[in-house]
């Protein structure tokens, strides 16, 4: 015993050397993340209680916590459209997520079985997801342009009025005397979301589908199950795990999404979501403290929603 401890003190054991090397190897990456992600996260909380204007940034003393208050929070939550912004964000994130997963599942089911040209079709379907956001939002705004966009040109050809899709907040649908108000710009932005991110869901669901044992499907077929029944009772239950993970990831990412809406509508016409409001506090109102406070509000809302999801809806794979 004593001999062993003595020996260990003299030369590091293999396990110690391994541990030391491990720390050395993870150090650079961890430092970067620590300094550029974790530290900013904490600091952001501090700033959200301080009064910081963009112009005084150079001389501001961040360590001076004598004037700490909830002023920023009451300011950002007191804005008249605060609740509207939150509602829009939740609607956008929820429907954007559901539609993109739905479309992705449909696409995955369609290319599940081999056919000629399948790999080409699969490759092309990834385009919306891999193309740069700026390029695809720009194509969409041009296609939907009220004066020279091709969509309005087609509507015109079909005898409809031209519609300014991205700048019109509400559209009243007249369905057999029923007047239905549709939040037009928000709907278009949600469609964009579904279009752009369905390949992500598609890839995950397809990978899962192809890993499923074929015996179950065959057994169901022998038992006389039709295709819809096979899907409903055999395939779908096996996709639950991947669908819950997808919903979680896509919801979080859509909830935080800034670029897509910013580039499509700039947050106008009833499409202002929290990330856009945060950047507006910084860029147009030059109020850093309030921007920080609103971003904490965003994180808190997301945390609450995630808690609810994990508690009641999430299904382990």
């Amino acid at each position: 015993m004593t001999q062993q401890t003595l020996a260990r003190r003299k030369a590091p054991t293999l396990a110690q050397r391994e541990a030391r090397l491990g720390w050395v190897l993870v150090l650079p990456a961890s430092l970067v993340v620590l300094v550029l992600v974790l530290f900013p996260l904490l600091w952001n909380t501090g700033m959200s209680f301080q009064r910081i204007r963009l112009i005084e940034l150079q001389n501001f003393n961040f360590l001076d916590f004598s004037d700490v208050s909830l002023r920023n929070y009451s300011r950002v939550t007191g804005v008249s459209d605060f609740w509207a912004t939150i509602r829009t964000t939740v609607i956008y994130a929820f429907f954007g997520t559901v539609f993109s997963i739905g479309l992705g599942m449909w696409a995955a089911l369609v290319v599940r079985k081999p056919f000629k040209g399948r790999s080409v079709v699969r490759g092309l379907m990834l385009f919306p997801y891999v193309a740069p956001t700026i390029a695809v939002t720009f194509v969409w705004t041009l296609m939907l342009n009220p004066t020279f966009g091709i969509v309005n040109e087609w509507l015109d050809g079909l005898g409809f009025q031209q519609v300014d899709f991205l700048n019109r907040q509400n559209f009243v649908l007249n369905l057999f005397g029923w007047h239905l108000t549709l939040p037009l710009a928000l709907t278009v932005v949600i469609f964009f979301e579904a279009w752009r991110y369905f390949p992500f869901a598609f890839l995950f669901i397809l990978a899962r589908l192809q890993a499923l044992p074929t015996e179950l499907d065959e057994a169901a077929m022998v038992d006389g199950a039709t295709l819809t029944q096979q899907f409903r009772y055999v395939t779908l239950p096996q996709l639950r795990g991947v669908l819950s993970v997808l919903f979680l990831l896509r919801f979080i990412w859509t909830f935080n999404k800034f670029d897509d809406i910013f580039l499509l509508t700039g947050g106008a016409a009833g499409t202002e979501v929290i990330p856009i409001a945060i950047v507006n506090w910084l860029r147009s109102r030059a109020d850093l403290g309030s921007a920080a406070a609103l971003s904490i509000v965003l994180a808190l809302i997301l945390a609450v929603l995630m808690f609810v999801y994990f508690k009641w809806f999430y299904e382990e794979e």
């Binding site: 990456a29 961890s30 993340v33 550029l36 992600v37 974790l38 530290f39 900013p40 996260l41 600091w43 952001n44 700033m47 910081i52 940034l57 150079q58 961040f62 979080i252 909830f255 935080n256 800034f258 990330p275 945060i278 950047v279 910084l282 850093l288 921007a291 920080a292 971003s295 904490i296 965003l298 994180a299 997301l302």
Partner: peptide, 22 residues
């Protein structure tokens, strides 16, 4: 580390990074 950066919104760290870098 992976989880935190993965799930944390870029907009939340954008403000402090803006300040820090300025």
């Amino acid at each position: 580390v992976i989880l935190i950066v993965y799930l944390f919104p870029a907009v939340v760290i954008a403000i402090p990074l803006f300040v820090l870098f300025t």
